[in-house]
């Protein structure tokens, strides 16, 4: 019952009208976040303007966590229901997650050079994040294995569930081990160790990146649907007419 409710919500959000709305919402949210981060927020007392990387580095890492959580939940839902839409959602989310994990690492590296004096160090947070990236690059590789679609989806779901174990390890690495990387400055429970204006800019950036995530996943889901229909057209002569009608309806909805 819960799974079907989520399916209905995902269906509504990923409809074409939803995709266009999300696209505009993303542009507006990113513009507001850009102004907050680069203009309104003051430079940090110690790190000066390089600390502005906070507003893209932290949201990128948050987005990676969010994306891989969606992969985890979708993978469980796929194994339970065997519905292709869950597999498609997991694939879409994993791809976006890999992009933002890589971005978080590169942005951290750019930040690390002037502050730590090095582009890279084998710090627990950085190392576990690099492992996270490798796990989900592997996940995407599993999705390209030349096997039946059902088997591939099943294997990918298993990797998506097991791979998620690294997410809490990445998050807790700064408290479990001695780390060069700073600990959390914004806490849900307890006092935050960040100026209110910087916290506001960070929250806006996290919100903007979350909307961006929704837009990218929606777009990626449409790509997945279109590629599956193209495959259906190629493999089944009987599917020709309905598939074409669906594609034309989709195109009309997109450009109409």
């Amino acid at each position: 019952m819960a799974v079907s409710s989520v399916e209905r919500i995902v269906g509504k959000v990923t409809a074409h009208r939803g995709e266009r709305t999300l696209g505009w919402a993303t542009l507006v949210a990113m513009a507001v976040s850009g102004v907050m981060s680069l203009v309104i927020s003051p430079p940090d007392a110690d790190q000066r303007d390089v600390a502005r990387l906070l507003y893209i580095h932290v949201p990128s890492a948050w987005l990676a966590y969010l994306a891989f959580t969606v992969v985890f939940v979708s993978s469980i839902a796929y194994l339970r229901t065997k519905k292709t839409r869950w597999d498609r959602l997991a694939a879409a989310s994993a791809e976006v997650g890999v992009l933002f994990t890589a971005l978080a690492i590169v942005l951290g590296s750019i930040w690390g050079k002037p502050i730590w004096g090095t582009w890279w160090t084998w710090d627990p947070r950085i190392t576990t994040t690099a492992i996270l990236l490798l796990i989900y690059v592997g996940y995407l590789a599993v999705r390209r294995l030349p096997d039946s679609a059902a088997k591939r989806a099943r294997w990918a779901a298993v990797v998506g569930i097991v791979g998620f174990l690294d997410v809490p390890i990445v998050q807790l690495s700064v408290t479990w081990w001695r780390s060069l990387h700073q600990g959390p400055t914004v806490r849900l429970l307890g006092e935050s160790t960040i100026a209110p204006i910087m916290k506001a800019a960070l929250m806006v950036a996290v919100f903007a990146f979350t909307v961006l995530y929704l837009y990218l996943v929606t777009l990626r889901l449409r790509v997945g649907r279109l590629e599956e229909r193209a495959l259906a057209e190629a493999l089944s002569p009987r599917l020709g007419q309905p598939a074409e009608a669906l594609l034309r309806a989709e195109e009309a909805a997109t450009h109409g």
Binding site: L38, Q47, R48, V50, R52, L53, I56, W111, P114, G117
Partner: peptide, 13 residues
């Protein structure tokens, strides 16, 4: 190191 760090921030954005 903190004299002029705009370049790193802009590169990231």
């Amino acid at each position: 190191a903190v004299d002029n760090l705009w370049g790193y921030a802009i590169a990231g954005y």
